[in-house]
Design a protein around this nucleic acid. Structure first.
Length: 973
RNA sequence: GCUCGAGUGGCGGAAUUGGUAGACGCGCUGGAUUCAAAAUCCAGUUCUUGCGGGAGUGCGGGUUCGAUUCCCGCCUCGAGUACCA
């Protein structure tokens, strides 16, 4: 009897659940191993075959580690707050929790089918109050902290208040907004509101008027990583800049540590590079320019202090705070018009306009700090308000953007470095000697940078400075379906909700829309008022809040007294292996590192990097199927008789197309194909009573066909007609009796009809086959198209493996005989390979190794328990169901998951002979088996004496013979 | 534009330190079995050829007895980023 995967898999699914086979304890003598997947957002579409790829890889790793004596934590949960459920709620009025729960159930059902070793007792959902209670608590920790640049860590805000009370803020070196200096006496005179406002400048979670990404379509602000090319990540809606009172997190305080921390973690270089670019560290100097006839100072940041003598004008951003004061009366209209236009541009418009240089002169002049010359101050939107000081010193000769601006507005271009041609373009290289630069003349660029900074500092004009591109993260969302920010307002003063009142639960509302007054949806909640204050904060937290610390909650998921006990976090410590997609590079992965460092600084956990090793699984792409419809057919001529379309099979098309365009140059083969197609079409015309020759057979318009009705590129015509009724009368021009579809690799998406669901694969082939096949597709990190083409090979492998344990009649039959030398060699070759491959995350090659092993054992007709038992254990991380079933059939007690991974014994692989490939001039010519104990000279003699050598030498003496023992022999003629 | 990654049969891919290029699987071809089919098994399958060979890992060079692997210069594709001063 054949292997019945349905029966076996459903049996063990139940057994494992009933026995809690995958329960993990926090107490164990074994070494720990924490294997984590990026938890999913449960979308309405369910899982497609791309989603479980990483989960399968991590599951194999987790099971392997368990077999190797580790106490393994391998949990799963859901990132359950999010925009799609809320958008759906707005449309249908259904509570987002209802849709989310329905999606969760479906996800769980799909995940359960695949046989993961998740400890479901640790499942978490970020939308549950028991969970977000602690997300709110962490927000509270951020609110109650400030970042001390001196100690390079977060500290309690109470300490800061104490410093203010005793010595004012002059001695404080903090990551903060610009705050006027005050003394202790001045501090104590300030009222509660004033003190609160000042403290907000220092807190890690703070409320401030800041430029935010406002997305009108979604009715909320977005963080920088949620805006892609000026459009919202979710939904692709336009985003504009807007000044708003917003909660933000001071991640910028951690820029340097987030950068340095990358050195100590085992992530891919590309991912680290993305984070480095996102943090965007640059070093240079800040420099102050005095404005003529004014007491204003313009501060700029530059990475090229060496080029200071090349400054010929200045440019400030349209949003710069001095715009008004710098504008002279006669320029007022121009400037106002320009500033208004710039402000009304969306991010996207501004980006699309990069090549179009715009700007306006303010009418004011600044004074060059070294030459004393007057230089004009312009406004230009190529200068970003959010970076540096929002103002630049323009060095047209050595910066391409300044160069373009100078060319457009006919401003002077002053070269200060030798080389380059300023008639043509800016010379941006950081090499060459300084000229026209007074005290810098003759220096090389690198030296000039240092000298210029030294001079700037000694003259008191500015100082050396490091800048980061990383901006603070906007934390409030004007949406319903998220964690309420646990703050309330008391006479305009923001106050933290008492910890004893957490969770501050999400109130019910009548509609998931903003109020008429423009407040967020929470403004609709009735009787939702704090006891001691006026009103609660109406924003909720962004989607990434819950995911920034969930890895900690898995360690101690049911703790009601703290986010996770210190014992639990000390025991499980960092995540040993984290698998997930690259799309979270600058969002989730950066925020998680940030929160981890804050919790570490405040002494709540004992490590400051959450994910020790991280692997990115490549995206699984879809393979779309295409059918080719001809451009025109007889329909117009004789409408009544034929209302269908004609489709031409894929491999006929090139010849038909060529014949259509260039019949003269067709080969006889191409003509034959063309004639064949023509004949088939003529017969269709005849059959359908069309005017003969009325069909144009120039094929065009490929149509996407549902991949489920295509097998090995062959279209199931009946199913196709049923699927698309408008083609129910279609006719098909076939090749070899089949309609062959074309292929296209595209993202897996409903609109291309190329989505493949794991449930269907499990139903048809079993979960073990799905798991093996997903791994067999190719390297984990690489993006690859899904195609079901090769899955039969894996199915066959599973059956062959099963058959090793069964006789020809399908009766279970294993022998207790001692394994032969050869059988042991086959087994231990596999054990070695499987072990190495898992440790290198090369799962595709280990599946090959399993196939080789089973093929060989089949040839050897091996049914010896001693071999098969170890083989079953080795395979069990990949194919847990069949392995568990055979384990119990072998009469072993307990679950195979509690077995021990077979120890590799190298003595079984020791050989006494080696088959040498013998090459002449590097080309392999023949193989020669020789004993391993021969020395180089003996090998050479034996090889040269061989008759094949004589043939290849052709009477000539070899020039040189290279012998690499146990490898190759190469003879140079 | 910049940064990172990748290019190997009809297809997915292998070759872990410079040492037999194409493992394993799909597909295809032929055969066995079968009344027939499915399933299974066996053999073949990089291209080319005059059947001796010859060519071959994106392209052009180089180092080496020997290069998919190392070096130099290009090309193509993918991902990220985009006025960051």
């Amino acid at each position: 009897m054949d292997y019945n995967f349905n029966e076996v898999e459903s049996k063990w699914r139940k057994e494992w659940a009933n026995n809690k086979t995958y329960k993990t304890s926090n107490e164990s003598d074994k070494p720990k191993c924490y294997v984590l997947d990026m938890f999913p957002y449960p979308s309405g579409a369910g899982l497609h075959v791309g989603h479980p790829l990483g989960y399968i890889a991590s599951d194999i790793y987790a099971r392997f580690k368990k077999l190797n004596g580790f106490n393994v934590l391998h949990p799963m949960g859901y990132d359950a707050f999010g925009l799609p459920a809320e958008q759906y709620a707005i449309q249908t009025g259904q509570h987002p929790k209802v849709t989310t729960d329905a999606n969760l159930t479906r996800y769980r059902d799909q995940l359960d089918k695949i046989g993961f070793s998740f400890d479901w007792d640790r499942e978490i959902k970020t939308c549950e109050p028991e969970y977000y209670k602690w997300t709110q608590w962490i927000f509270g920790q951020l609110f109650k902290s400030w970042y001390n640049n001196q100690s390079q860590k977060a500290e309690s805000i109470e300490n800061l208040t104490l410093i203010f009370e005793n010595e004012g803020n002059a001695t404080v070196d903090a990551a903060c907004e610009e705050t006027p200096v005050f003394t202790a006496a001045e501090w104590s005179k300030k009222n509660e509101k004033e003190q609160s406002d000042i403290l907000l400048n220092y807190r890690l979670a703070y409320l401030s008027d800041s430029m935010v990404n406002w997305c009108p379509a979604l009715g909320t602000v977005l963080a920088n990583d949620e805006v892609i090319n000026g459009l919202s990540e979710r939904g692709g809606h336009p985003v504009e800049r807007k000044l708003m009172l917003q909660w933000s997190l001071r991640i910028s305080a951690y820029a340097e540590r987030l950068l340095q921390g990358l050195e100590n973690i085992d992530w891919t270089d590309s991912l680290k590079e993305m984070q480095r670019n996102w943090i965007g560290k640059s070093t240079g100097a800040s420099l102050t320019f005095k404005v003529n006839n004014s007491n204003l100072d313009l501060e700029v940041f530059t990475t090229r202090p060496d080029t200071v003598y090349g400054v010929s004008f200045m440019v400030i951003a349209p949003e710069h705070e001095y715009v008004g004061q710098l504008t002279s009366a006669d320029k007022k209209d121009d400037v106002e018009a320009y500033v208004t236009t710039s402000k009304n541009k969306t991010e996207r418009e501004r980006m699309a306009d990069v090549k179009n240089v715009t700007g306006v002169f303010t009418g004011s002049y600044a004074v060059h700090p070294f030459t004393g010359k007057e230089i004009p101050v312009w406004i230009g939107d190529y200068v970003l308000a959010g970076y540096g000081t929002g103002a630049v010193m323009a060095v047209a000769a050595h910066d391409s953007r300044d160069y373009a601006f100078a060319k457009k507005f006919d401003l002077p271009i002053l070269p200060v470095i030798e080389g380059g041609n300023i008639e043509e373009e800016a010379f941006e290289a950081k090499t060459g000697k300084m000229i026209n630069s007074d005290f810098l003349d003759g220096l090389k660029v690198k030296q000039a940078m240092k000298t210029a900074i030294w001079k700037i500092e000694t003259e008191g004009l500015g100082k050396g400075k490091t800048n980061y591109r990383l901006r603070d993260a906007v934390f409030g969302r004007q949406r319903y379906w998220g964690e309420p920010i646990p703050m309330y307002f008391d006479k305009g003063i923001p106050k933290l909700v008492e910890e004893s009142e957490y969770p501050l639960t999400l109130p019910e509302v009548d509609e998931y829309l903003p109020t008429e007054a423009g407040d967020p949806p929470l403004g609709r909640a009735k009787d939702w008022k704090p006891e001691n204050g006026d009103n609660y904060e109406l924003s909720t937290m962004p989607g990434w809040a819950g995911s920034s610390w969930y890895y900690l909650r898995y360690m101690d998921p049911n703790n009601d007294g703290t986010f996770a006990s210190r014992e639990a976090t000390d025991y499980w410590n960092q995540v040993d292996l984290y698998i997930g997609g690259t799309e979270h590079a600058t969002g989730h992965l950066l925020y998680s590192r940030f929160w981890c460092k804050v919790l570490f600084d405040l002494g709540h956990i004992g490590f400051e990097e959450p994910f020790k090793k991280l692997i990115n699984q490549g995206m699984i792409l879809g393979t779309s199927a295409l059918a080719y419809r001809v451009a025109g057919y007889g329909q117009e001529v004789n409408k009544d008789s034929f209302s269908g379309d004609i489709f031409i099979s894929k491999n006929l098309i090139p010849a038909v197309k060529k014949h259509f365009v260039d019949p003269q140059n067709c080969t006889s083969e191409e003509r034959a194909i063309y004639r064949n197609v023509q004949e088939q079409i003529e017969s269709i015309e005849k059959q359908e009573n069309l005017v003969p020759g009325s069909t144009s057979i120039n094929p065009v318009s490929p149509i996407h066909v549902d991949v489920s009705i295509v097998t090995n590129n062959e279209l199931n015509i009946e199913k196709f007609k049923a699927w698309r009724p408008e083609f129910s009368n279609a006719q098909f021009v076939l090749e070899n009796g089949k309609y062959i579809c074309g292929e296209e690799v595209e993202k897996m998406s409903k609109r291309w009809f190329n989505v493949v669901n794991p449930d269907d694969i499990v139903k048809e082939h079993g979960a073990d086959v799905l798991r093996l096949y997903e791994m067999f597709l190719g390297p984990l990190e690489q993006a690859k198209p899904w195609s079901t083409k090769g899955i039969d090979g894996v199915s066959r492998f599973i059956r062959k493996f099963w058959n090793l344990f069964h006789d020809a009649e399908g009766v279970f039959s294993v022998s207790g005989d001692q394994p032969s030398k050869e059988e042991l060699k086959v087994l231990h070759t596999l054990i070695k390979k499987a072990q190495e491959d898992i440790e290198n995350f090369s799962f595709n090659t280990s599946v090959s190794a399993f196939m080789v092993c089973v093929n060989e054992l089949q040839k050897l007709k091996c049914n010896k328990k001693a071999v098969l038992k170890e083989l079953a254990i080795t395979l069990s991380p990949y194919a847990p169901f069949i392995a568990e079933e055979l384990w119990s059939k072998l009469g072993e007690s307990g679950s195979i998951t509690a077995a021990t991974f077979p120890a590799f014994n190298p003595s079984y692989l020791v050989e006494s002979v080696h088959k040498y490939p013998v090459s002449f001039n590097g080309k392999m010519r023949f193989m020669l088996e020789l004993p391993l104990d021969l020395d180089k000279a003996e090998i050479e003699t034996q090889v040269l004496a061989h008759e094949n050598s004589q043939k290849w030498l052709n009477g000539n003496a070899p020039k040189k013979v290279i012998v690499v023992p146990k490898k190759i022999v190469n003879i140079v003629v």
